[in-house]
Nucleic acid binder design. Sequence first.
DNA 1: CGTAATTAATTAAACATTTGATTGAACCAG
DNA 2: CTGGTTCAATCAAATGTTTAATTAATTACG
Lengths: 233, 233
Amino acid sequence: MSRGSPAAGRVAAVGRRRPGPRRGASQPAGTRGDLLRAGAEVFAERGFDGATAERIAERAGATKAMINYHFRSKQGLYEAILLSTFTELAGRLDAVRAKGGAAPDQLRAFVDVFAGEAALHPTFPPMMVREVLSGGTHLPEQALLRVVGVMGVVRSIVEQGVKEGSFRPVDPLLTHLSVVGMLLFFFAAEPFRRKAAPRIGLKGGPPSAAAFVAHVQELMVRGLATAAPHRRR
Amino acid sequence: MSRGSPAAGRVAAVGRRRPGPRRGASQPAGTRGDLLRAGAEVFAERGFDGATAERIAERAGATKAMINYHFRSKQGLYEAILLSTFTELAGRLDAVRAKGGAAPDQLRAFVDVFAGEAALHPTFPPMMVREVLSGGTHLPEQALLRVVGVMGVVRSIVEQGVKEGSFRPVDPLLTHLSVVGMLLFFFAAEPFRRKAAPRIGLKGGPPSAAAFVAHVQELMVRGLATAAPHRRR
DNA sequence: CGTAATTAATTAAACATTTGATTGAACCAG
DNA sequence: CTGGTTCAATCAAATGTTTAATTAATTACG
């Protein structure tokens, strides 16, 4: 630990730029960025314990020692990925709430943005679900706050809808759990559907994300609406 | 594998009975049953890779060699657990469909039974979600068929409802994904809620399973109902 | 300017654990 | 005895981390 290690408090700082080959994704270049991208993929596919440092490094085109150099440990890499992912998502969802409008429209927009983010960063839903599954073991404090923030967005939308009379009086937390649960499960299950598709009689291939988004939007807006349901008996 | 190993094709067979201490759960006694129970718990908590044979054996009050003796390998234990769990669930849900009745009532019953099973066997939702997450890597063929069967139950309920006129014309597969996604996520996230509850301003403690079930039932029946929604604009 | 000193980035090898599986002896009911 | 069951000890492979050496860029300064 005698030589200066950059892992200490840094998060987004980028080392020197290299004129190397073009990167596929967007933001950070260099080995550090390669590790973030490769790590997100492998962690999403196999979970924290199933992802070996060796495999991550290989996919990033680096050696596993680089993980410890740039992030201090495998867990350090994991936390850096979680934090940046959750922060970006929470930011976009906050924007939905901030934009205002009628509650049903905000709810539709919430679903849209959430799904858009999941489609843009396919590693986010699996990582989120895995983290929830393990009780937030590896979840850094700051990332947990983002999750709480998202919960607050849904809560305030629902509360506004109830006050406006467009929604019946429902529990905001339960509503949040249903919407986010549906969406996370759908996107996290994508690899499963692809692999199990031939086994299932799946006409017209697996369902598209757009179709599911529309389905969820209708389901929620109709399901929360004030109008009385089809009462039987 | 020279000595006779019972692991080959067995699934539910029980070794000799012992007069040991009372077991907490129901079915199989003996070391084999202890391993099934302990394995389900640890696999649910940590996933396949995160669960060590040592930890499972310890919780079962046995040694890890017993896993290999009774199930040939750690993966063998895992598959045995998955198969028995999924088979039981699929059976109860098939019964819901077989009982008949109006589509909305069947859908409510489906949610009820699904949630009841999850509450009775808290290890099932996490294991199911983890398996879906990893694309069904460790999923034995027979267990996959059960999952497909459950999907068929929802599909036929929805198709009946559409034909009867109680449901609007929705995609059965998308409907299945929403219901099952909501339920699995809710139950799989239980440890997370418990751990994050103090961090969140959670008035009255975490939501009860019964409350969530009622919420999902209303949401689905209203959301799928034929009646026109609260059209805005 | 040019060159030596310094720092950052990277790699290959070594290390210390951990872990799933195997083995052989002991145990025990019938 | 005998055959199924259990355990303690052992093995070999895998894995996260550390270390030492190498290379490249940046800075200091004569």
